[in-house]
């Protein structure tokens, strides 16, 4: 596998991924953090926040892993 710096495709794809994933993850977090399930208990509301954060954190983590691959 070519290193990141010597492969234009890897670099461009990583840039596209970073530009789309990072701001969007924050936008999703910002817009969805306020949304809760009306019938949810306190514990379920806390879980709602966990369910929101996990996929976004994993998305950023994957981006990092791919950049280091």
């Amino acid at each position: 596998m070519e290193s990141l710096t010597s492969s234009p495709l890897r670099m461009i794809a990583l840039l596209v991924a970073a530009i789309t994933v990072i701001p969007t993850a924050f936008a999703i977090l910002h817009t969805m953090a306020r949304l809760t399930t009306p019938t949810a208990t306190r514990r379920e509301r806390l879980l709602d926040q966990v369910w929101l954060v996990i996929p976004l954190a994993v998305m950023i983590l994957m981006l990092t892993l791919v950049a280091r691959a």
Binding site: L9, T24, M59
Partner: peptide, 11 residues
């Protein structure tokens, strides 16, 4: 879309 180009970013 960003996730879909990760195969290229990973080489």
């Amino acid at each position: 879309l960003g996730v879909s180009v990760l195969p290229c970013a990973a080489g």
